[in-house]
Amino acid sequence: MKRVTGGKALYGASVGILMLDARFPRIPGDMGNAVTWPFPVHYRVVRSASPDRVVRQGAEGLLDAFVDAARGLVADGVDGITTNCGFLSLFQQELAEAVRVPVASSSLMQVAMVNRMLAPSRRAGVLTISGSTLTDAHLLAAGVPLDTPVGSTEGGAEFTRAILGNEPALDVELARQDNVAAALAMTRAHPDLGAIVLECTNMGPYAADIARATGLPVFSIVNFITWFQAALVPRRFDPPL
Results as ranks from 00 to 15, higher is better:
Gly80Asp: 10
Arg56Met: 14
Val45His: 01
Val74Ile: 05
Val111Met: 07
Pro51Val: 02
Ser50Cys: 06
Cys85Val: 00
Arg116Ser: 15
Leu73Ser: 08
Arg23Asp: 06
Leu18Ser: 01
Leu90Asn: 01
Val67Asp: 07
Leu10Ala: 11
Gln93Phe: 03
Pro120Asn: 08
Glu60Arg: 15
Val35Lys: 14
Lys8His: 12
Ile17Arg: 02
Asp30Thr: 08
Asp21Lys: 14
Ala49Ser: 12
Val101Ala: 08
Glu60Gln: 15
Asp79Glu: 12
Ala124Arg: 05
Ser106Leu: 13
Thr83His: 09
Val46Tyr: 03
Val55Ile: 15
Val46Trp: 03
Val41Ala: 10
Met31Asn: 00
Ala124Val: 03
Gly77Trp: 08
Phe66Glu: 11
Ser107Cys: 13
Val103His: 05
Glu94Asn: 14
Pro51Phe: 04
Asp52Gln: 10
Ala22Leu: 10
Gly58Ala: 11
Ala75Pro: 00
Asn115Tyr: 01
Val54Asn: 06
Ser106Ala: 13
Val114Ile: 15
Gln110Asn: 11
Trp37Ala: 11
Gly72Pro: 08
Val103Asn: 07
Cys85Lys: 05
Phe24Met: 14
Ala96Cys: 01
Leu90Cys: 08
Lys8Ile: 00
Ala98Gln: 04
Pro120Ala: 13
Leu90His: 04
Thr82Ser: 13
Tyr11Ile: 00
Ala49Lys: 09
Ala112Met: 05
Ala34Phe: 00
Ser89Glu: 08
Phe24Trp: 13
Arg26Leu: 02
Ser14Tyr: 07
Gly32Ile: 02
Ile17His: 01
Arg53Glu: 13
Gly12Trp: 08
Gly72Phe: 04
Gly12Glu: 12
Leu88Lys: 06
Ile17Val: 12
Leu10Val: 12
Ile17Ser: 02
Asn33Met: 07
Asn84Leu: 02
Ala9Gln: 15
Ala119Met: 05
Ala65Pro: 01
Asp30Val: 02
Val114Trp: 02
Asp21Phe: 13
Ala22Gly: 02
Phe87Arg: 01
Val41Ser: 09
Pro28His: 06
Val103Arg: 05
Ser107Gly: 15
Arg47Phe: 08
Arg71Ile: 00
Ser50Phe: 06
Ala59Lys: 04
Val55Arg: 07
Ile17Met: 09
Gly80Lys: 06
Met19Trp: 00
Leu73His: 07
Asp68Asn: 11
Asp64His: 12
Arg56Lys: 14
Ala59Asp: 09
Arg56Glu: 14
Asn115Leu: 04
Ala112Leu: 12
Tyr11Cys: 02
Ser14Gln: 11
Ala104Gly: 00
Ile27Met: 08
Val103Gln: 03
Met31Tyr: 09
Gln110Glu: 14
Arg53Gln: 14
Met109Val: 13
Leu18Glu: 01
Leu62Phe: 09
Ala98Lys: 07
Pro120Val: 10
